[in-house]
Design a protein around this nucleic acid. Structure first.
Lengths: 112, 112
DNA sequence: ATTCGTTATATTTGTTAGGACATAACGCAT
DNA sequence: ATGCGTTATGTCCTAACAAATATAACGAAT
């Protein structure tokens, strides 16, 4: 039986968390549904939690990550900015690279 | 202002956590003090929590990580096995390498 | 003006993780 | 045989965190 190695990475901007796995999931769901409330439903989390996460993301990012609109056709909605899309892609890439890197490093332990 | 990247890594053995940062801290403190209760004190955690962590480590490891003795001179004590020492060293090395790797990867985001 | 679905926010309720406390068992030393 | 400091566990309580509920504000469309 071999050990497994797992990891969590996140990106901070002066003490505040900008992105982590949960926030990236949320951003992807927003991209797919066009709405924060729909995104929360697909992720099975409360709207409030989703809103808090998104709020925190936008407050700690250098540029806006989403554009949120209240009222209007369909009641409003949320969508990713180009910057937001780039962040999601970059995070996914880093995360995937990290997994591969760690899997190699794990030999140091499985060979003990 | 640049973003920072942070990470947590841990090693699992069929669903159970074997090692993480907290457990490695504990093992190091045991190595230094020769006792689980003293280690708990230096880490400012309760003895019970320390014991639960250590118990979980030993239960999920392939070979014993510590030798614990009850009673006798000084009341007993705990010390790392050679396997335990190797695990701690390997974990530290992997963790350090991971930080360096991620710092390089972070450019993907800071350049956006 | 009213309806609609959304964003935005406060308040209350529930749940779970951790801390505090208590106690037993052990074996060496005196 | 008694005391000592440790490992080993169980029980209770609380405090932090998450979930549920409620409500306001908004703007387009009818």
């Amino acid at each position: 039986m071999r050990y497994k190695i797992k990891s969590r990475i996140w990106i901070e901007s002066e003490n505040n968390v900008l992105l982590g796995e949960g926030r990236v999931h949320l951003l992807k769901a927003i991209q797919e549904t066009g709405s924060l409330s729909k995104a929360a439903k697909t992720l099975n989390i409360s709207y409030k939690k989703a809103w808090q996460m998104l709020d925190s993301v936008n407050k700690s990012a250098k540029k806006p990550v989403t554009i949120n609109s209240i009222g209007g056709k369909g009641g409003g909605g949320a969508e990713l900015t180009e910057y937001g899309k780039s962040l999601v892609m970059a995070f996914d890439e880093i995360n995937k690279n990290c997994w591969e890197f760690l899997d190699k490093q794990l030999d140091k332990i499985n060979l003990l």
